[in-house]
C-alpha cells in the first residue's frame, strides 16, 4: 500500500501514479484535510494496547509530495469576524498535535518514505555550512544588518547578489499584483541608498557562471541537467524569470564522480532520500554548490533529459 500526500493538479504526482497503476500497486492519494481524516480520522489510545493506527498494514510506503493536507478549511461564517484569527490559531494548534502523533504512527509502519511530513523547508545556512565541511565549493556568503559590512563585501567581491535566507516567495498586494523575491544583483548605488542598519539580509558573491546545473537526487543517485541560460541578459541572474525569445537549453549533464560522492554525503547528513540540488559551473571550470530543495520539481529535469524519474520514484515507492 502506498500513500501519497499531495495536492490537486500536481502533474508530477499524476505521472508517478500512472506508473504505480501500471505496476499494479495499490495507491491512495491524499490531497486535502478531509481526505486525510477520511483515512486517518479515528485514533484510539487505550491501556495495554499497541496503539497503532486503525487498519494500516505493515508494508506501506509514503511519499510526502506536497503539504496541501494541512490546509484545513476553517468555518468562517459562524463566528464573530474579530475572533477569526484567534479561533484559527487555536484550531491550528489542535491539529498540529494530532498530525504530529498520526504521522509518527504512519511513519512507523513505513518501509519506504520519500520527503517529510514536516515539509520541504531546510535551514539553508546550515546546509551551506555542512556542504563546505564536506568539501563542496560554496559561494562566499554574508548575512548582516549593517550597511558598512555590505559595502565592504561588495568592494572585496566586486559583484554580489542578495537572496532569501528562507525561501524565494512572493507577496500579493491589494490589487492582486504579485511581488516576487527573486535573486538580485546589488549595485554600488543601491548600497549607498541603504540605512545604516537594515533588516538582516543574505548576500553572496556573484558566481560568473558558464551554466547552471540542476541535479535530482534520489536514493543515492544523481540525475543532472545543465541549464544554459546566459544567452541573454534577462535570464542571467535567475532562470525562473522566463525568457521567451532566447530560450534556455536543458540537456543531460554528468557531474564529476567526486562531486556526486560529496552530494550523496550531504544528502545523507541532511537525512534526505530525495531532493533537487542547485549547482553552478563557473567560467573557470569549478562546480559551486548553491542549495538543496527537498521535494523539488523533478519534472523539469526528467522531461528534457528523458530520465523517466517518475518511473524511478514509482519503483522506489514499490520498494523494488
Amino acid at each position: 500500500m502506498i500513500f501519497i500526500f499531495s495536492q490537486p493538479h500536481d502533474t508530477s504526482t499524476n505521472l508517478v501514479i500512472d506508473w504505480l497503476y501500471y505496476y499494479d500497486q495499490k495507491t491512495i492519494r491524499i490531497n486535502s484535510y478531509s481526505e486525510f481524516f477520511h483515512h486517518f480520522g479515528t485514533v484510539k489510545i487505550e491501556n495495554n494496547k499497541n496503539n497503532s493506527l486503525g487498519n494500516l498494514t505493515k508494508k506501506i510506503s509514503i511519499w510526502y509530495r506536497r503539504r496541501g493536507v494541512l490546509a484545513a478549511p476553517f468555518p468562517t461564517n459562524k463566528i464573530d469576524q474579530s475572533l477569526i484569527y484567534q479561533f484559527g490559531e487555536n484550531l491550528r494548534s489542535e491539529l498540529k498535535i494530532l498530525f504530529e502523533y498520526t504521522f509518527e504512527k504512519i511513519n512507523k509502519n513505513a518501509v519506504a518514505i520519500l520527503g517529510s511530513e514536516k515539509g520541504s523547508r531546510l535551514n539553508k545556512l546550515r546546509v551551506l555550512d555542512i556542504a563546505q565541511s564536506i568539501g563542496l565549493n560554496i559561494p562566499k556568503t554574508l548575512i548582516t544588518n549593517r550597511k558598512t559590512a555590505i559595502i565592504e563585501f561588495l568592494q572585496s567581491e566586486k559583484s554580489i547578489i542578495t537572496k532569501a535566507i528562507s525561501e524565494a516567495t512572493f507577496i500579493v498586494d491589494k490589487k492582486s499584483n504579485k511581488h516576487a523575491f527573486y535573486t538580485q544583483n546589488i549595485s554600488k548605488k543601491k548600497t549607498t541608498e541603504l540605512d545604516d542598519e537594515i533588516f538582516p539580509s543574505l548576500l553572496q558573491q556573484e558566481i560568473k557562471k558558464e551554466f547552471e546545473i540542476r541535479t535530482y537526487y534520489i536514493n543515492g543517485k544523481c540525475y543532472s541537467m545543465a541549464i544554459f541560460s546566459q544567452q541573454s541578459a534577462q535570464t542571467a541572474t535567475d532562470f525562473r524569470v522566463y525568457d521567451t525569445v532566447n530560450r534556455n537549453r536543458n540537456i543531460p549533464y554528468q557531474l564529476p564522480k567526486e562531486i556526486e560522492r560529496q552530494l550523496k554525503k550531504l544528502m545523507t547528513r541532511l537525512q534526505l532520500k530525495e531532493g533537487s540540488i542547485d549547482l553552478i559551473k563557473t567560467k573557470d571550470n569549478k562546480i559551486v554548490f548553491l542549495e538543496v530543495n527537498p521535494s523539488g520539481q523533478f519534472g523539469m529535469v526528467s522531461r528534457p533529459c528523458n530520465y523517466h524519474l517518475e518511473e524511478k520514484i514509482a519503483k522506489y515507492l514499490s520498494h523494488e
Binding site: L15, D18, W19, Y21, Y22, A226, F228, I251, P252, Y253, Q254, N285, C305, N306, Y307, H308, E311
Partner: peptide, 21 residues
C-alpha cells in the same frame, strides 16, 4: 556550443517507456 570538456555532456538517452497500455 563550444566546450573544452565534451565528456561532461552525455548523449540524450533515447530509451522510451510509457505507463499507458
Amino acid at each position: 556550443f563550444y566546450t573544452d570538456t565534451p565528456e561532461e555532456f552525455p548523449d540524450l538517452n533515447l530509451k522510451w517507456q510509457s505507463p499507458y497500455k
